[in-house]
Amino acid sequence: MNKAIEVKDLVKTYGSGETAVHALKKVDLNVFEGELLLLLGASGSGKTTLISIIGGILSATSGSCKIRGTEIVGLPQSKLPKVRLDNIGFIFQGFNLFPALTAQENVEITLDLKGIKGRKAKRKSTELLERVGLGDKLKSHPSDLSGGQKQRVAIARALAGEPHIILADEPTAALDSESGKLIMDLLQELAHEQKRSIVVVTHDNRIFDYADRIVEIEDGRIQDAETEKHGDGESLHIPTEMIEQGANA
């Protein structure tokens, strides 16, 4: 399998001297094409920092992070938007839709960034929204949509750029179980059928079953990374603590 994301010895330190905070301490992580990976970790463990660096939003202190073979650590800030635009789609816990725009216009924003405008943009945004089951909500504003519908618009928006990698931050946290299931079905389909690499940061034990692999990050270090793999007959590894948390939930 090809590696879509290749992280090696990644270090991120905020501040310096005695007040320095070491958010990531030599993290190694690979994410493969067509894989749905769950990234678990307590608050402050470094998972948001990690996907921020993978997403090209935050600079690493040292180490390597390759996105489909392109090294992004040390890449000038001016080059990062194109890396993001060409490779990465984001899905946020709070949806981050533009409230002033309709569902269709929210999707068109990504297309606009890619230089796709006019009728072509309309047609494509319609197709994408139909694909996530919102063909009848093209003209609805986010305030008129349910949480699940908003997240589906966000997925359509992320897909509009045809990214190879999707980084999803707590995509189901604000949703009821049915909506969460629908979203995870969609993400799983994108990973397995369209061979996109999907990294989901989550605390939501309801979605563990969707994972091809679960990785836990703790105190800036990956625990049990790449020890178990799903697919190709390999078994799924879930950290014991998370199973206990799930059982207690």
Partner: peptide
């Protein structure tokens, strides 16, 4: 600001 931050994450250039 959050909307602009989202746009930035989506790959919008500073010029955009």
């Amino acid at each position: 600001i959050k909307e602009y931050g989202t746009l930035k994450a989506m790959g919008a250039t500073n010029f955009y």
